[in-house]
Structure formats: structure tokens, C-alpha cells
Computed example of a mutant assay.
Amino acid sequence: MRIAYMVHLNMGPDSGVFKKIISQINVWLQYSDVKIFIITRCLDESIKKYYNFDSAIYTYQNRSIAYRSRITAFERAVNDIIAWNPDVIYTRQDHYYPPVKQLAINNALVIEVNTNFMKEVRMYSRLKWLYSLASSRIILSKAAGLVFVCSELAQEYQYRKYNKPYTLIGNGFPIEEVKTLPPNNTDTVRLVFIGQAGCSWHGVDKIIRLANLCPGWEFELIGISQSEIDGSAPTNLHLHGKLNRSQYEQILQISDCAIGTLALHRNGMKEASPLKVREYLAYGLPVIIAYEDTDFPNGASFLLKLPNCEDNIDNNIQLIQNFVNQWKGKRVPRNEVMHLSTWQKESKRLDFFRQVINRRNCSETNRD
């Protein structure tokens, strides 16, 4: 099987999305011929040192002529993908770019849906929301298949109305690449969060609120800097900005508990499978969340699930304190999270690719 992975990516090698894509392809390469086609405004050839497989990079300008430059980059990528002649093309849902239509018409295009795209876009740009409202059908209606990271998305009318073959695959993590960290045996209670600015559904403001309510605990925020929060941070909240894995592993090692997504309600959703939560669990950290996790439909002792609402911190402070204290000096058993492994997730994705290809081949045979 020959797989082209087309991705519009403006996050660097330390981002969860970049690491997810690399770990996906590393599994696919064990069974398939794979090439990644990256359209970007901020990455360059230097990123190739982070992986060892075939790739092509198409850059565009981040200026007033950015749209034309971006379209040109997509045109070049699409032409090269067609020339490479893959059996299936995989991509993440994005805004509509006209050159991609050619891929959807003439190839088996499979789209990964990571979020409620329309609701998320509406949160930050009404203009882009209107554009997507009018144009998203052009690609979705012609896709050969959809991959959802949670079942809630699969039930959304914006996708369901096209009646496309689909599969449900929650986000995974290459668990085998890291070791369960030893417990923090110091007297200090320390919580950690990994995220990025500009994502209101992460609930960073709620973590700040929790730090104010628990002055005896220490809070480590990775990926967030002082300039990216409103007001001043309490003295027990430490903002580290962007760190690479070797740097933030040291913080994870001295932490007792991790914090996942706390405000998914702001994104109009109740279910998710966040990458950061999979990473926390791979290292053995219990996690505080506020959503239904796709891979733990019945919950788990190492997941504290708060209500998915605006006041979930203030109304559950005792519950949070009890959970953290209960897990102090403990780690999550590795065998209870192995189903999150990238290997298991990607085996299912590859099976879906084969089904899509076979269905397309049968359809073409019947037309002949």
C-alpha cells in the first residue's frame, strides 16, 4: 500500500501534533510505502532531522500576499502527490483550498477529524467560519472516508449528512518510547500541564484559579509564558514556555498529577482524546480532566473526571484535593494504558485504509 500524508502544519517538532504525525508514519512504514507532503509557512528543510522517511516541504509567505502564496504551495503539493501515485491520501481536516479538490475527485482521500471544526473556527473568526460553512462540503462530499478521534464527532450532522465510510480512532501515543517515571517522593505536591496559548478549551484560566485555591501546591505550566495569560500569575504557578521533551520530562518526574482539558464546553464538545493526556498516562501520571474520554468510556481510577462546565473548579475543590492526595507517591500501572499505544491505533487505521481502497476499486470495476 502506498500512502501519501498531506498536512498543512505550522507547529514545530515539539508540538503534540507534529509528534503524533511522526509516530503515525513510523508505524505505517512497517507495512507500507509512505511519503509526507508538508505545506507550511514557518517550517523548513531543517525539520527533516526529526524523522527518517521520505518527505517534501512546500513553504508559503506570511504576508499580505499569503493567500496566493498558500494556494501556490498547495498546487505544488497536489501536483507532486498525483505524480507520486499513491493508493490512498491521508490529511487532517482544514479550511478549503481549491487545489485539494482535484485529490478528492481522482483519489482515495481520507480525512482525519480532530475537532468540531465549524464550532472551533467560529470561536476565532466569523469570516473564516462563513467561508468554511460555504466550502467544507466540496471536500467532505468527495472524501473516500473519514477518521474521527471521538464518537461525538462522528454523530455531528456536518459530517453524518455525507454518509461516508468512517472509523473511530482516539489519539494514541508511542508508549514504548518512554518509561513510567518513578513517583515524586518529596513532601511538595506538584501538578503539571502541557498546552499552548490561544486554546480557550484547555482551561488555563481554570488552572490559575486552582492554584489560587490551593496555595500549598505547586503548578508547572509547560508551553505557556507570562505574556500569554491575563494578569499576573500566583506565586505557586510557574510558567515555563515552550520546552522540548527532554526538558519537560524533568518536570513530569517531580510531579504528582497532571491536568488535562478543563473547558471543552467552550468548544461545544463533551468528548475527546487529547494527545497530552495520553502522554501523561504513558509516563504514569494520574490526570484531572473535564470531558468524556473516548478510550475510557467507563472511566478509570487514575482519571478524575470533573463536570464539563464553567465552574467545575470552584464546585469540586475538595474532590480535586482528595484525588491528588490519594495518588501522591503513586504512578499509573503501564498495563492499564497500553491500549493507547500508537501501534494499536495505527493498525486499525491501516485496516481502514485497505477497506477504503478495496471499496474504491470495486466501485471502479463496477463502472467499467
Rank of each mutant, 00 (worst) to 15 (best):
I3A: 12
P13A: 07
F18N: 14
Q30G: 11
S32Y: 04
I36E: 06
R41V: 02
K48W: 01
K48S: 15
K49G: 01
Y50H: 12
Y50Q: 03
N52R: 13
I57F: 00
Y58E: 15
Y60L: 00
Y60K: 01
I65Q: 13
I65Y: 10
I71S: 06
E75F: 01
Y96P: 03
V100T: 02
V100F: 10
A104V: 06
I105Q: 14
M123C: 09
Y124W: 11
A134G: 08
R137H: 04
A143K: 13
A144E: 02
Y162Q: 00
Y162K: 05
Y162R: 03
I169D: 11
K179P: 00
K179Y: 04
N184G: 10
T186R: 15
T186K: 15
V192W: 13
C199D: 11
L210K: 01
G216Q: 10
L221T: 10
D230F: 02
G231P: 04
K242V: 08
L243T: 02
C257S: 02
A258D: 09
I259Y: 10
L262G: 04
R266M: 15
S273F: 07
S273G: 10
E279T: 06
L281A: 07
G284P: 06
P286N: 02
A290P: 04
Y291I: 12
Y291Q: 14
G299L: 09
F302A: 10
F302C: 06
L303S: 04
L304P: 01
Q318A: 13
N325Y: 09
N325M: 11
P333T: 11
N335L: 01
V337T: 14
H339L: 13
T342I: 15
W343R: 08
R354N: 12
N358D: 15
R359E: 13
C362T: 08
